[in-house]
Structure formats: structure tokens, C-alpha cells
């Protein structure tokens, strides 16, 4: 039998039509052992206060929608068990993003940055369909597979102290996704992405604190992607003087 414990859930709320600034609101929620933070949010929405707004979709750490701050740490609401928490749990919108409403943040900047990095396979000339598919070896797949696991949940942006200081920084997950395509043997878009990657607001804004990799729920390690891109960007920079333009 699952044990139920009543937990005080404090939620940072912001309803632009009533609140001049975000305010904390508390709810008492009876939580069975197996509940995650998202279950408690659903309980509040369905039983106590239907005006609560938050993003979610899959409830299984795949869609990346439910990133929130739980007791000050960026986490997926669907992957954070309440049984591991105390009697009071504070849930706030992701840090470093403007709040749209309650736990929903504005992520337009990130989407623009991601788009600018062309996160898809680019070919100089498309291979005709009749010539078949692009084959890859296991070794070629292994080079970039880790970086394909990113779900764009933006926990890394909420954890990044450099993004907190300068939101023009392209940021961890967008750069890691650029790296994912750069490493793909089928891709030829490296030079195009490099225009953004090697700019002052690309990899060079990172000071290798590594918080992005620590909070990543999919173990993507964006910090390593950014450091690897610093090495390739440095090689490029000096090779340009030797006429080896890339």
C-alpha cells in the first residue's frame, strides 16, 4: 500500500492581469509515495485551483516541457519524486527566462538561437533518391549520438551562470545541438554554423563552470560539446592565417 503524506507545495505565481510582480502561493497536497512534482501540480490544477498554469505533455522525461525550479534547482517536474523532498517543496519557473504566466516562461530567445544554428543535416548537394540512403558506421554514429538525446528542456539555461549574466549567449543546449550536427558524417553545414558558434556570443561566452552538464536530465554533457567546439574554433582561427580557410 502506498503511503500518503501531506506536503506543502509553494508555487511562484504570476498572473499579469492581477499580480504586479510574482507572488508565492501555498497549497496542501496529499501525496502518495510514487508521486512526482508534476502529479502534485496536476492535483492542484484539478482539485484546488484551476487557474494554475504550467507546461507539460509526456509525463516521462521525453518532451522537455515541464522544466521548473524545485527548491531552487532546475529539474523536470515529471522526473522529481516528492518522497525525496521535505514537507515543504517550492516550485518556481525556470531561472533566467522572463515569466509569461505562473510556471510558464518565455523561450522565444532560445528558439531564435537554436534556429540560427541550423540544427538539421545540411548537404551542399542533395544525393538523388535513387542513389539510396546515407550509410553510417557504428563508430560514426557513436561520435554524436549522446548529443541527440537533448530534449530542449532548458534546465541547462536555468543552471548556466553565464546565461544569467548575458542572455545574448547562445547557451549550452543550442550549442550542443550544433555540435551534434557538426559531428554527423552526413552533414556539411559546419562552416555555416561556425558563423554563430565562433562569434563572441557563441562558445566564447562559456567559462566552463559545467553546471549545464550537472543538471541535464538526459546526461547530454553540453559542457563537453562547448569545450570541443572551442578547440575546433581555435584551430580554425589560426588556420585562417595559414590560408587554410574553413
Amino acid at each position: 500500500m502506498s503511503e500518503t503524506r501531506t506536503i506543502k507545495i509553494e508555487i511562484l505565481r504570476y498572473r499579469p492581469e492581477i499580480d504586479s510582480s510574482p507572488v508565492l502561493q501555498s497549497y496542501r497536497v496529499p501525496c502518495p509515495q510514487e508521486w512526482v512534482v508534476l502529479d502534485a501540480l496536476d492535483y492542484i490544477k484539478n482539485n484546488i485551483d484551476s487557474s494554475l498554469s504550467y507546461r507539460w505533455s509526456c509525463h516521462m522525461a521525453v518532451c522537455g516541457s515541464c522544466g521548473v525550479m524545485v527548491n531552487g534547482e532546475p529539474m523536470l517536474a515529471c522526473k522529481t519524486f516528492l518522497r525525496e523532498m521535505g514537507d515543504t517543496v517550492r516550485v518556481e519557473p525556470l531561472l533566467n527566462f522572463p515569466i509569461e504566466r505562473d510556471l510558464v516562461v518565455v523561450i522565444d530567445d532560445f528558439l531564435e538561437n537554436l534556429k540560427s544554428l541550423k540544427p538539421y543535416i545540411i548537404r551542399k548537394t542533395e544525393k538523388p533518391v535513387e542513389e539510396g540512403t546515407h550509410l553510417q558506421t557504428h563508430a560514426q554514429l557513436k561520435r554524436f549520438k549522446q548529443y541527440t538525446l537533448c530534449i530542449n528542456c532548458l534546465l541547462c539555461y536555468a543552471a548556466c551562470p553565464q546565461y544569467a549574466l548575458n542572455t545574448n549567449f547562445i547557451g549550452p543546449s543550442a550549442l550542443a545541438l550544433a555540435h551534434r550536427y557538426n559531428l554527423d558524417s552526413r552533414d556539411e553545414g559546419y562552416a555555416m554554423r561556425q558563423e554563430i558558434v565562433a562569434s563572441p556570443e557563441g562558445v566564447w561566452e562559456c567559462s566552463f563552470v559545467g553546471a549545464c552538464s550537472e543538471v541535464c536530465p538526459k546526461h547530454v554533457d553540453p559542457a563537453s560539446a562547448v569545450q570541443q567546439m572551442k578547440i575546433t574554433s581555435t584551430k580554425d582561427y589560426f588556420l585562417r592565417f595559414l590560408g587554410g580557410k574553413r
Binding site: 561556425q194 565562433a198 566564447w204 572551442k230 582561427y237
Partner: peptide
């Protein structure tokens, strides 16, 4: 976007 000149410092830093 212009390329950063950071590699001038970052190269010796990394090495």
C-alpha cells in the same frame, strides 16, 4: 556575425 578573437588567448590557455 563576426568571429571572436578569443582564440588568441584561449589557444595558449588550453595548451
Amino acid at each position: 556575425m563576426a568571429r571572436s578573437h578569443k582564440p588568441i588567448i584561449w589557444g595558449p590557455f588550453a595548451a
